[in-house]
Simulated scan of single mutants.
Amino acid sequence: MNIPLSEPDITEPEIEEVVSVLRSSRLSLGPKMEEFEASVSGYVGIPFGIAVSSGTAGLHLCIRALGIGLGDEVIVPSFTFIAAANAIRYEGATPVFVDIDPQSLNLDPARVEEAITARTRAIIVVHTFGVPAEMDALLDIAERHHLRVIEDACEAIGAEYGKHRVGTFGDAAVFAFYPNKQITTGEGGMIVTRDHHLATEIRAMRNQGRHHSDAWHQHSILGWNYRMSEINCALGCAQMRRIDHILSSRENVARTYADALNDVEGVEPPPLHLSGRHISWFVYVIRLAPHFGREERDTIARKLIDQGIGCGRYFAPIHMQPAYDNLPVAHSLPVTEAVSSRTLALPFFNRLDKERILHIVKTFKEIINSLKI
């Protein structure tokens, strides 16, 4: 078998939506964008949605709109995709890396509180792998220290903390729709917020700094071309109509994996449940036992790939990336470094059936047993 790490779930209705846009005369800033924005914001349960070209663009615009810049610090995990830290640096601010909770792999609130200084302006709370972060504790810290909160929900559409979906807790939140995400627009992202002024400024910034009331070629503020095309939005509209089914399918894949891995020694599957939280399954990341190190993990990954099974290391810590060699790390990150050396993402997508999952697990088990560690 040849099994990819991820695969988008595109059906005929998605294709028809895209073709309908191509047959129209409106390819940007049109009705499909407005429909997609309303669909996502309504689903999340928040008033304003702003479609953008990527999750990275969304994070950048949130940082900019909140007035965070040179000399400011923003707390962020190192165990996440690099875009969260890059967006901080785009505006001249400094990412302050904080360690994670060993169970949820999200920011550890106790470590967050220890990292706050007079220069701290905000916290980027990442809902890692679709697992909601400990929002009550983090919001309490932010309120006491007068900090802004940006939710990086790029991996977590549909996840719930308590009775509310992620994206409803911070000053703003960002979702992303890359082809490996729960739903996809090919490329694209969405900012959601309750703040009308923030939404207005972000809408202008994503369109070269032009407010809705501005004349053509009139630009009131500094902006970027972070627009999302009507083609991408049309794909997103069709995907949103199926989101409940898609999320349910992914949860079933996760349950099938958990059952199949039950008797495999040396492997810790991700938790299916966490108290007070509902997971939106983005990836399926296992942890190898502590006696396995990075070298063994990478050997397993190579052997899986050699046998046609896609896999990947999730995540390589940001503070250990070459692009961050010159950025001092102010706080120790023992959990991040220990966990990241043993994590491995197995193939995971909506239509991954039981036969292929059993083949993946059988192959994985044979490889682990061959290492004789």
Results as ranks from 00 to 15, higher is better:
L333Q: 06
V21I: 13
H291G: 04
T184K: 12
Y90H: 09
N2E: 10
L272C: 04
F177L: 03
I318D: 12
A122N: 03
A115K: 00
R287N: 08
I221N: 08
H291S: 13
C62N: 05
R194S: 13
D101I: 06
E12Q: 13
P328L: 12
F292D: 10
P269I: 01
D152Q: 07
I88A: 09
P179I: 10
L344K: 08
Q103I: 10
L22D: 02
I286V: 12
R302Y: 10
A156P: 00
V283E: 14
S6V: 02
I15V: 15
D244T: 15
L139G: 04
I50E: 15
F169P: 00
A110Q: 05
R297H: 09
F169K: 01
E201S: 11
G266T: 11
S341A: 15
C311E: 00
I279D: 09
D99G: 09
P132H: 12
H197Y: 11
R119F: 12
F349A: 00
P4Y: 03
S41H: 11
L61I: 00
V19N: 14
C311D: 00
G170L: 03
A289C: 15
T120A: 02
P328M: 11
A159V: 05
G58I: 01
S6K: 02
F79C: 05
G45P: 10
Y43P: 04
G293Y: 06
G236H: 06
D152E: 12
G58A: 01
D353A: 05
R313Y: 01
D263Y: 08
V264D: 02
A199Q: 05
P179V: 08
P102L: 11
D99S: 11
D136M: 14
L105E: 07
A234V: 11
C62S: 07
A57G: 12
Q182S: 05
E14S: 12
L344Q: 09
L66P: 09
S220M: 01
K365M: 11
L304M: 09
V112W: 04
D136H: 15
R210V: 06
G58S: 04
D72R: 08
H164S: 03
A142G: 07
S54T: 12
W224S: 01
S280N: 01
G209M: 07
R111T: 02
I10Q: 09
H331R: 10
F348Q: 02
L327I: 12
L344P: 08
R242L: 14
R351H: 10
C237T: 08
T343I: 04
A118E: 15
K362A: 14
H331P: 08
G49C: 03
P290S: 09
G188D: 07
G30K: 03
T94C: 12
P270M: 01
